[in-house]
């Protein structure tokens, strides 16, 4: 049964402004259609019967805030999602990064870590892991805790192995993890060069310069204004001739970066030219 919306457009605006003022989490420039759906979904999941009920809970129960953030932001992810993207990283980008004395990669919006381990494996297979650092950031501290454990459901491994093979992986994928009943743990050495940290793309500043920034399926949740701000942040955080990689349906076409970045063939990867 498709329930009618509990939270309307004006309610949404009010709540997002209040959350920004009270907690400093600013969702006011998120895509309206998507966040409205997420918030109405929370009402259904947590059985808030009215907007007033949800608003009271969010603004008066601080322990509910982390739940709210977890459900508003989308944390669906998989290892080697879009294998062709990873094939391009593996064959065209990572070898080029190898000429640097150090390789610094920022994985923005890393969620529960599936992409972190995917990239770490690519670096190990390219024999570049010893001089690489991956900064893996997310707005949500709860998902970062999960990412740090490297524990994923075993029933995903068939898909992930297939994705890995399609990305050009030639090792036995199961050597990267150990299996325990219903879950697998990715090997400790894969996160040795990973720094996990909270970072809010909507409000936090640049914190380093990187040769590669990967931010996939995060910008789709932002409106154009916020996307522009984040593109500026990425631009400020990327070395000259560095690479920016986005999700398969995301683009810099609408941004001023379009002038100074050159797309790497057909991939959603752009090179900073100056």
């Amino acid at each position: 049964m498709m329930a009618p919306d509990i939270v309307g457009d004006e309610d949404l605006e009010q709540l997002l402004n209040e959350v920004a003022n009270v907690y400093g989490y600013d969702f006011t420039e998120y895509s309206k259609a998507s966040i409205k759906r997420r918030i109405n979904r929370i009402c259904l999941l947590d059985k808030h019967k009215s907007f007033a009920e949800l608003r009271y809970k969010v603004l008066n129960d601080q322990s509910y805030l982390s739940r709210f953030i977890e459900e508003v932001t989308v944390n669906v992810t998989e290892m080697y999602r879009d294998p062709f993207f990873y094939k391009a990283l593996r064959e065209k980008i990572i070898p080029k990064l190898g000429v640097n004395p150090y390789i610094k990669i920022w994985l923005a919006g890393c969620s529960t870590g599936e992409e972190v381990y995917s990239i770490s494996i690519l670096l190990h297979e390219a024999k570049l892991a010893h001089k690489a650092i991956i900064y893996a950031t997310d707005i949500n501290p709860t998902v970062l805790e999960k990412a740090k454990t490297g524990v994923f459901a075993i029933n995903q491994m068939k898909l992930y192995t297939e994705n890995y093979n399609n990305s050009g992986g030639s090792s036995d994928f199961s050597t990267y993890y150990s299996a325990n009943y219903d879950h697998v743990s990715f090997k400790e050495y894969l996160r040795k060069n990973v720094i996990f940290s909270t970072h809010n793309l909507a409000s936090d500043r640049s914190f380093n310069e990187f040769q590669l920034i990967i931010c996939r399926n995060v910008l789709i949740y932002f409106d154009k204004n916020l996307q522009d701000k984040v593109f500026n942040l990425f631009d400020a955080s990327l070395e000259k001739l560095g690479y920016l990689a986005l999700g398969s349906k995301e683009t810099i076409r609408f941004s001023h970066l379009n002038q100074t970045y050159k797309q790497v063939e057909k991939e959603k990867i752009w090179k900073k030219t100056r």
Binding site: V74, N217, I220, G247, K249
Partner: peptide, 10 residues
């Protein structure tokens, strides 16, 4: 509302 597309990987 402005009739642009909003994609969602939820």
């Amino acid at each position: 509302k402005d009739r642009s597309v909003c994609l969602d990987y939820s």
